[in-house]
Write a protein that binds this DNA or RNA. Structure first.
Lengths: 360, 360
DNA sequence: CACGCATTGGAAAACGTTACCCATGCTCGG
DNA sequence: CCGAGCATGGGTAACGTTTTCCAATGCGTG
């Protein structure tokens, strides 16, 4: 550094011990609220800590004990749903000594491996993996090394806890809603998935299954129409283009995620179609974006905040008690209807294109 | 863990040294690409590393040398502009041995202090602080402890590097654009700021100054009209409500950030006003959201990606050479005109409310 | 009064890596 | 042929905690 960095050596536990006239062991005990320190001792040590402005070195701690660090792996930092989950995690971990550190893995399996390795190398006390693509086997290997909670992925394991919402039911809610409005040609945009394990575990796959099942249940099996792309805005854009090019254009599009719905709206706007006048659109996640008035997207609330809270709680539990059996938490989704869905046909369309209640 | 965690002891540098028949020093040298290891030695050691699946412990490394960890502090994980910056940072640091870890600080000064302390405690090799609220004095204290790059905050320091865009000019671009379209009553929504230092350093404050200056320059000094809230979606909503309640309603609103513009659009939709028919809206940041077709927001591109790339590059430089003088990088903003701005008055409004070119 | 036991405090050995310094053998110029 | 200098490799002491003992003290109990 220009002005010379680190002129003063860091205050260590030894300095504190000297200043308080006790042993380093005693200081360590106070720091960790461990057994064997009298109230007077605690007071003395805490006073010394404050006076010297001591802060424990996480690196040194990591060599023997905990690092008081929890890692959260996100697949995509742009998807606002994950921000909700993070809020929940932070809310739960706010008062504790733990620091949350986030790493994004860009929806890429090697990158995920890199991130999880990095977290393990850094001796993190626990990790929360959000919608990981990583193979089941690797997930279990990770979980055997460090307390792990997997969020948004079904399929229970004996080694890690999971938190997810009931995507099967959620997809059903959307189809039921659209069917009730009178739609028949309800199309779906899914995240393309080929891996057999992920087909049974990833939320995107479950939503697609839920969609198919619900279509059958409503007697709309013949109208099942799926575009396979990715769970990104661009994926939604491409998917909608595909669907619009079909001979029988759908009257409603159920996008597998709000961020996908954004892409759909993008494409529809480009095509000069109005929502819901020409086409109804629904998403999944109830991100803050969906509530945005000019969009007003019908979607499924899977309570991101609650998911985060639960994940953090499970992780703390697991850190405290390594032997507790693995737990699966499944949250019930809730449909949130907004202005992006309406009965098919021109009636609503007329109302929409008037400026009185603009949606697009 | 149910199945018993960590059955196998971690592979250490000692194991590698034994397996390769060399000293631990030699292994360490290879790991760090340090001087004093012959090609044959390197090959031998690397082979042993691969065979044993060795990974260095970041905690142990942190005690003596580097941790190969770079911390990024974000004020708000929901603002998509920061995602652009992060992309830039990741792009620049992708090929290196460094791992980027993110912590969000919720636009709160004590929380920022907590986060920066946590990063220092963890011996991070460098930190990138994005739009920090932290006092100048504390920033310099941080920078004297750990290589630091401050992003999006003006005011040059001798101890830390900065990367920012020219917010003064950027605000001027927006005002000029709106004035050229014929607007006079151009209002601005700013982030309320009282701290005297931040008033000269924070981008929000500079944008407000730039707005005032440009209004004067265009002979619109009498029309200066400012709502002071926060740089959040909710802040934009409240600000727009305030402005709409004024006796002389503005014909254009320049929101200090895209996320603020979102709130503005929210409020305008609620009030049944069309954009740009009734009111033009402009933002700042050119987030992906602004390009979203149903919104199509006129905004200022400050090249978040480039900002991130520069910040990462400066940080690596600084880590390599502590003595280089502090550098300030200032990027030129660029106006991106889209459909949310148009000439004032009904002419355009008629065109807008027709469904042919929907904006809201 | 002796004995066990709980409480309190400390000494010293890890933990896994890097930094510092020294030893060796070789080459090359004078 | 000799000494300087370089290339290569290793020994060992940190780094700042936590953990695992162990000692000393006080106290109740038989």
């Amino acid at each position: 550094m220009p002005n010379g960095r680190a002129p003063a050596r860091r205050v260590t536990i030894i300095d504190v011990a000297k200043h308080a006239g006790v042993s380093t062991t005693a200081v360590s005990k106070v720091l960790r609220n461990a057994y064997g320190a009298s109230p007077e001792m605690q007071a003395k040590v805490r006073a010394a800590i404050d006076e010297l402005g001591y802060r424990p070195s996480a690196a040194a701690r990591g060599m023997r004990g905990q690092t008081y660090t929890i890692g959260v792996m996100l697949p995509d930092i742009r998807n606002p749903f994950f921000a909700d989950v993070l809020d929940g995690v932070n809310a739960q971990l706010g008062g504790t000594d733990y620091q949350v550190l986030i790493a994004s893995a860009c929806n890429d399996e090697p990158a995920e491996a890199h991130v999880t390795d990095a977290m393990i190398d850094r001796n993190m006390d626990g990790v929360i993996l959000i919608a990981p693509l990583t193979s089941r086997k690797r997930l279990e290997r990770i979980a055997r090394t460090v307390p792990t909670v997997v969020v948004g992925r079904h399929g229970n394991s004996a080694v890690y806890d999971t938190v997810a919402d009931d995507d099967f039911t959620g997809a059903g809610l959307v189809v039921a809603h659209l069917a009730e409005l009178g739609h028949q040609r309800i199309a779906h945009i899914e995240h393309d998935e080929t891996d057999p394990v992920r087909l049974t575990e990833m939320p995107n796959a479950i939503r697609a299954v839920g969609y198919r099942h619900a279509m059958q249940a409503h007697g709309l099996g013949d109208f099942v129409d799926i575009a396979s792309t990715t769970y990104t805005q661009h994926g939604g854009y491409l998917g909608a283009k595909q669907l619009l090019a079909r001979p029988q254009r759908p009257t409603a599009i159920f996008a597998g995620a709000d961020i996908v719905a954004m892409g759909v709206l993008d494409a529809l706007t480009e095509a000069g179609l109005s929502v819901p006048g020409d086409i109804s659109v629904a998403g999944y996640d109830n991100t803050t974006f969906a509530a945005f008035a000019p969009i007003s997207l019908t979607t499924v609330d899977q309570a991101g905040h609650q998911i985060g809270v639960n994940a953090a709680r499970l992780l703390l539990d697991r850190i405290a008690d390594d032997s507790r059996p693995a737990t699966q938490v499944k949250l019930s989704p809730r449909l949130v209807t907004r202005r992006s869905t309406a009965a098919p046909g021109g009636g609503a369309a007329a109302a929409r294109t008037a400026s009185q209640d603009p949606v697009l």
